[in-house]
Design a binder for these strands. Structure first.
Length: 918
RNA sequence: AGGGCCAUAGCUCAGUUGGUUAGAGCGCUACCUUGACAUGGUAGAGGUCGUAAGUUCGAAUCUUAUUGGCCCUACCA
């Protein structure tokens, strides 16, 4: 190739990499080329992941970007390693969230409530909305470059997941694990549904203790002493007195125990209730007297059960006071509280108020205050499956990465409460329980058959008319079956089509710690219970994304980062690399767009490294190790620098493999990053320039083949993290007939390419060049100006190496004449008189000066170095003289310290003689 | 109240089982447009690892206490 064509090629490539065109080009090629589909690889092993399904309502946020990028890195890595890989994507119906969005939409457009529209019509609208929205989420996921098998795509309310839900529900119903009962549950008045314990978040709220007098029955006045004609109750929720059905004291409380069995009057409602003795009451807390409201307090509910107290419900479904007290009917809790306090004051029953801060439950979705309320709900007894899940983790059937997350998992499963699974919503899997409407029959049963079939069959006992339970299941009920239903379970035909046996149990679950309870634990329980197997072998818990100062991203703070904007600005690869470089075993990832900018620069660096070798590519094939079947041959073929870069590459490949296997994406990313910058670009490319522009054709051909070899490996190592640019560049580097990079082999370390002495020599060589540059800058020599250098070397082998590579040294340190002697030959005659110098452990380097220098400053530098070295040497010497050290420390540690001490001693001597000779 | 996590350079973080002079990115300073790249290059400044005590030949790393921050669970009349 002549110079003219070289220039032409170079001008075709822009100086800066443009991610947009490349990204839009490659995704369709991979997808349409079926590269995301599972194919048998060289290992004859499978690797499968189920994607945590994003909500169908959602807009992709940073958490999704992180979650999916890491899964994609694993999938691409394993695919290249030769696993048969399958990544199953999906979307969640997200019961409450979706219903709320569509309800609002209908209200905005038609000013109609869902009840006005009717259940059937409402569900039809919501399905239409879902179909329209699902595509948006998929489109956004594709922008991340994820290599999921879209043919496997599942929606949580598709027929198969629905079949799974019905099957499990009926099984548990028949086993008695699912039961319906009146129980105190968390009621979300905004959503107007029960929610599970896990969906309640406790937040600190300013409140107050209100001290209220309750008069004893037959009390003559309200003025006399406590325990004579009244009791004082402290409460943060005075309005709940409308539902009080007892007052409790501790049976051992000397102050009050004589009152047990007597009657007391609830103010306002003037209800006569018993005073009871219960050990739950803490004598030391509050006033020692406790109002008991079994309908609206978890503890009181338990007390009520023990004492057979009636339950009075004071709230409507929307959280307002019901007809229990007509004066208060329709007021919300806050208003009712104020009105009650006022009325108590008027009656002289209100004593005082003490401000306090207390924890109040809020609905995770609605953020409104959750009201404990008694209602009829469906529950699952999960005790046994919880224990099975704990066992599975203890027996390493499923492992957490990082391991300590298993404690969180255990803490939830150790004492599990019954799981409230019914929701008073319309959008979701409807509970497959049917009721016979014939009053003489009243049969209740669960059926796996769909509604139409059950309806046409009628009641199995009396053939009467039937109806289905109107409630739907908690979203997590279907999510809990995700590992099974995405692979077709329980439908045998679908399982066969989706190769259930091949891909189940899945390999790794990648998710955040915030849903260990909601999801990881439930999937474990439900999958173990139904198949006896774990849903996945590993769970990698990744970081939660925060802003750059570690604050949660939130709308109110306005500190959210939109991944699509980040992609728009810096490209998908840069965003992905920010994520991988920041993901290891950390709990949080504090995301700073400046980092992404830095990694965008890295991508650009890679692009330009390619621009450099590009004109030469057509001239030569990549180095083929097969051609050099024995080490001797290979050694002869390679130069010092070739052996050095190949060994360095080898170490990086080793690190990348080990790191990704252990989910240390950060270690893998940073290792290859630093290889590209600090080894390949800074040194190997620089060292190659004279050869590529030089006259020695044979040498040039060899160098091109190695550059090409290294660059191909770099692209392969980087591909899982930054798939787009690597695939784009691969197109130029692949040999005739080679397939896309996405299916190339992932590099592994190769013992044949470990050249230890070349690594050592090169490190010394770099140290010498940096020292010369340091000297040059310290006296302001212009970068272009060439200088004379005198080096005295302690070690003959290194001297030899230096002479062999003298031209490289000249190039990189701009040295005009190199004068190199052994240190033993140093004398006043051959040491430049007027010079500045610097010492390493192996050599003394002198830069002769023609002009004047600032002796003071220069001597200061030498002295500073001397002092530092003396301190270090002193430390090591003390260590060596300490018998305890030489006797107790491992011999290799002692040997290392000895070596180091020797090196420092040499350097000390050099520095001292330099200072003395000034 | 119980449990867990964190504290390392101006900022954000690495630092494997205790073992050479504690690392990176960004930021900062000086110099440089050199035939891949100013989204660049070269050189450099800057931490003794929250505090205190202890174990050890040796501690950022282990133990205890303490301060500050975060999270989870339970509950508060």
């Amino acid at each position: 190739m002549n110079t003219q064509t070289q220039t032409q090629i170079q001008s075709e490539l822009p100086k800066t990499y443009n991610p947009k065109d490349v990204e839009s080009k490659w995704y369709p090629k991979w997808k349409n080329g079926k590269y995301f589909k599972a194919k048998k690889g060289k290992l004859n092993k499978t690797f499968s992941i189920i994607m945590p399904p994003p909500n169908v309502t959602g807009k992709l946020h940073m958490g999704h970007a992180l979650d999916n990028t890491l899964q994609d890195v694993l999938i691409r890595y394993k695919r290249m390693k030769g696993f048969e890989t399958l990544w199953i994507p999906g979307v969640d119906h997200a019961g409450i969230a979706t219903q709320a969005v569509v309800e609002k939409k209908i209200w905005d457009e038609q000013k109609k409530s869902k009840h006005q529209i009717g259940r059937k019509e409402f569900l039809k609208t919501i399905w239409e909305w879902k179909d329209a929205h699902q595509g948006l989420i998929i489109e956004q996921l594709e922008k991340l470059g994820i290599s999921a098998d879209w043919d496997y795509f599942v929606f949580t309310m598709d027929p198969i997941p629905n079949e799974a839900v019905r099957k499990v529900f009926v099984k548990w119903y028949q086993e008695g694990l699912i039961f319906q009962t009146d129980y105190i549950i968390n009621w979300d008045p905004t959503i107007q549904s029960a929610i599970s314990d896990a969906e309640v978040e406790h937040k600190e709220v300013k409140g107050a203790f209100h001290y209220i007098k309750y008069l004893l029955k037959d009390a003559t006045s309200a003025a006399a002493d406590v325990a004579v004609d009244h009791l004082i109750i402290a409460t943060t929720r005075p309005e709940t007195l409308l539902g009080d059905t007892a007052v409790a004291v501790n049976p051992d409380d000397e102050r009050f125990k004589h009152l047990i069995g007597k009657k007391i009057i609830i103010p306002i409602v003037n209800r006569e209730v018993p005073i009871i003795g219960d050990n739950h009451v803490d004598i030391t807390l509050g006033t020692g007297c406790l109002k008991v409201t079994p309908g609206h307090d978890f503890n009181d509910f338990e007390i009520g059960k023990r004492h057979n107290l009636p339950i009075v419900n004071i709230l409507n479904k929307d959280g307002t006071i019901n007809d229990v007290a007509l004066d208060y009917q329709g007021l919300n809790v806050i208003a009712a509280r104020a009105k009650i306090i006022k009325e108590l004051e008027e009656q002289g029953l209100y004593i005082k108020k003490e401000d306090c801060i207390h924890q109040v439950g809020h609905g995770q979705r609605s953020s409104s205050i959750v009201e404990p309320m008694v209602s009829k709900q469906w529950f699952v007894n999960v005790k046994k499956m919880a224990q099975e899940s704990i066992n599975a983790v203890n027996e390493n059937e499923m492992r957490f990465f990082p391991k300590n997350w298993e404690n969180t998992f255990f803490s939830w499963l150790r004492e599990p409460k019954d799981w409230c699974i019914s929701r008073q919503l319309w959008w979701g899997h409807q509970i497959p329980v049917f009721y016979c409407e014939n009053e003489n029959c009243n049969h209740i049963w669960a059926s796996v058959d769909d509604l139409e079939k059950v309806q046409s069959d009628g009641c199995p006992k009396c053939k009467g008319k039937i109806h289905q339970d109107p409630d739907v299941l908690d979203t997590w009920f279907s999510s809990g079956l995700w590992a099974l239903s995405t692979l077709g379970w329980p439908n045998e035909k679908a399982m066969k089509e989706k190769s259930f046996d091949k891909f189940f149990p899945t390999s790794t679950l990648v998710t955040g710690f915030d849903i260990i309870f909601f999801w990881v634990a439930r999937m474990m329980m439900m999958t173990l219970n139904n198949t006896g197997q774990v849903p996945f072998r590993h769970t990698y818990i990744h970081a939660i994304v925060n802003d750059k100062h570690g604050r949660k991203m939130s709308k109110s703070l306005g500190n959210g980062i939109d991944p699509l904007e980040l992609i728009e600005q810096y490209g998908t690869d840069a965003m992905r690399f920010t994520i991988t470089a920041g993901s290891g075993y950390n709990r949080y990832l504090n995301l700073d767009p400046a980092q992404t900018e830095g990694y965008r620069n890295f991508i650009n660096k890679l692009w330009n490294a390619f621009r450099f070798i590009h004109p030469f590519l057509k001239e030569e094939r990549a180095l083929d190790l097969e051609l050099h079947s024995n080490n001797h041959d290979l050694n002869n073929f390679l130069t010092h620098h070739d052996r050095w870069i190949l060994s360095a590459l080898n170490s990086v490949a080793d690190i990348c493999n080990k790191a990704i296997d252990e989910y240390r994406f950060d270690d893998a990313s940073l290792a290859i990053y630093s290889f590209v910058y600090d080894k390949f670009c800074s040194w190997y490319i620089e060292l190659s320039k004279p050869i590529l522009y030089g006259a020695d054709v044979e040498e040039k051909r060899k160098r091109i083949s190695i550059l090409k070899y290294i660059f191909r490996k770099i692209l392969a190592l980087l591909h899982p993290m930054v798939p787009f640019i690597t695939e784009e560049l691969w197109e130029n580097l692949k040999e005739e007939g080679e397939d896309l990079l996405i299916v190339q082999e992932y590099p592994e370390s190769n013992k044949k390419l470990d050249f230890i002495s070349d690594q050592n020599n090169m490190n010394k060589f770099i140290e010498i060049i940096c020292s010369i540059r340091n000297l040059r800058q310290s006296v302001n020599v212009k970068p272009k100006d060439e200088v004379d250098i005198h080096i005295f070397i302690d070690n003959p082998e290194l001297k030899n190496y230096l002479l062999q590579n003298a031209s490289s040294l000249s190039d990189l340190a701009k040295v005009k004449a190199l004068n190199c002697n052994l240190l033993s030959q140093k004398s006043t005659q051959n040491t430049p008189a007027k010079s500045i110098s610097l010492a390493t452990s192996d050599c003394e380097i002198y830069l002769p000066l023609s002009g004047l220098i600032d002796i003071e400053e220069y001597v200061g530098r030498l002295k500073k170095d001397l002092q530092k070295t003396e301190v270090e040497f002193g430390k090591l010497k003390m260590k060596l003289e300490n018998k305890n050290f030489s006797e107790n420390a491992p011999s290799e540690v002692v040997a290392e310290v000895k070596d180091k001490a020797q090196e420092l001693e040499k350097k000390l001597n050099s520095l001292r003689s330099m200072i003395a000779n000034l």
